[in-house]
Amino acid sequence: MEKTYYNPDDLKKFGNVGEFQKELADKFFDYYGTVFADSALSAREKSLIALAVAHAVQCPYCIDAYTEESLEKGYSEEQMMEAVHVATAIRGGASLVHGVQMMNKVDKLSM
């Protein structure tokens, strides 16, 4: 067992997942490439969305990759941090909105 679960060098080995199941890996990476291509949204916009999502799913590989990608797409530190706050707001809001469920239950149980 490794001393840590995450090793930055493992990101470069991502493509190796195809060694155990090539067909699905090929389909995934083909899909991945298409998702991030310029289309209705630009590749630039998609990189900032990916940075926010990386924080929401707390993927260290994705945070490394899309931080660098966002810098190389010309985003400023402020823009990148605002994207992280969007992820944070949605995550926080997702918890808080359940407060309504709690209030409903309190109502139901209370006299």
Partner: peptide, 11 residues
């Protein structure tokens, strides 16, 4: 820093 430049036209 240690990264490549963005697309010139968009920047």
């Amino acid at each position: 820093g240690a990264f490549l430049p963005p697309d010139q036209e968009s920047l």
